[in-house]
Design a protein around this nucleic acid. Structure first.
Lengths: 203, 203
DNA sequence: CGTTATGTACACCGCCCTGTGTACTTACCG
DNA sequence: CGGTAAGTACACAGGGCGGTGTACATAACG
């Protein structure tokens, strides 16, 4: 709509039918869920003909998988590539994104599709493992005694906050961040020059 | 089938059409998800005519809500009413149930229905709050400094383990239990006569 | 006995869903 | 110019869904 200047009935010039589809997926899948969003509705929102959509994606299943692959960069790299933060701050920064980010579509997809073999479910699994691995990397960098364990624990906290936020309709990430702070302080042998304040569960 | 002795075409004598429906719901909703389980299939599994099902429940929505209400006792009271355990052990016992219990249908329902106003979603919310409250009770009994906070934190760990187990297809409750142990030891002023072993929660 | 409550069996409605078939239109590029 | 790639518009098939209507069968009770 913004800069795409379409001919009376002809194809859009703004270039990127595929992108508009994925963009609409992000919005609708989040707002309504995957199963409750039909292809008709989705194509209408993307301002794309249904025929075109099925030329870009073999079916809804593939579209869902691709839709998941699109969040990757914004969430994962956006947090971990901040060199301005100390390792400890970087670990805690993972609990600050939730307001911006759309409440973990990976869990939602895995639950809605309900098939561990579905491409999207497989990717969700890989993604979650990748996040845990990157958390473990940061934990190692921060000098944690058992980085893998801390990474897994922090990943669990993030997932718990996402799930609980969804069910309770109330932000659970502050609670998760408080727990994370305790875990981090307990796992790092007090060598860091960080501001380790001694409250056990500050919010 | 076991003891219900049905007439050739007549109604079952085993008494409890409603119960058979709810029982079949437990099985099918868990195995296939709510949205992917149709009423036809469900009634067939329950060995109940569709007409009867709609005389017991006004619709699928109500059935789903009632289905959630049926797990309550087994999960909630089964764990917290064990007087043979110390308060600390009782807090940790909440992380032992997962193999038996069906991986938190409350989260699944909230995600699948995707409508916070749906009766089942509302009940899921109430249930999650009730669990947190009972955890807080046990935490208070155990002498925690801030029981409400500890209860909320433990509840978050449980939800995180449930979600993560679902996505990764691997039991995440041990990890959650380890975190819980750290939190509990950190929150209780070391007055209890419990077996507080000094592993990672050193200080 | 007859009545009433409960249940079966099964066809059927209307709706929405994913996905395709057909015919037409436009931009681009050699 | 002509061809090709990309897209539109729209109908429609095929299937599953939630839910209902109809006619019949049985058990329990007075």
């Amino acid at each position: 709509m913004t800069e795409l200047e379409k001919g009376p009935t002809g194809r859009r010039r703004g270039r990127g039918a595929r992108e508009r589809i994925l963009l609409a997926s992000q919005q609708l899948f989040r707002e309504q869920g995957i199963n409750r969003t039909g292809m008709n509705e989705l194509c209408a929102a993307a301002e794309v003909s249904k025929r075109t959509a099925y030329q870009h994606f073999s079916g809804k299943d593939e579209l869902v998988a691709e839709y998941l692959r699109w969040f990757d960069p914004s969430v994962l790299s956006g947090v971990f590539d901040r060199t301005d933060l100390t390792p400890r701050e970087r670990l805690l920064a993972a609990f600050d994104i939730p307001a911006t980010t759309p409440l973990c579509p990976y869990i939602g997809a895995a639950v809605e599709l309900h098939d561990p073999e579905h491409p999207a479910s497989q990717y969700a699994r890989e993604y979650k493992q990748a996040v845990a691995a990157r958390l473990a990397d940061a934990a190692r960098e921060a000098g944690a005694a058992d980085p893998e364990q801390l990474g897994e624990q922090l990943a669990l906290l993030i997932d718990g906050a996402a799930a609980r936020t969804r069910v309770l309709n109330a932000d659970a990430f502050p609670t998760a961040a408080a727990v994370a702070a305790v875990l981090i302080d307990n796992a790092i042998p007090a060598t860091a020059g960080d501001d380790r304040r001694r409250e056990e569960a500050s919010r």
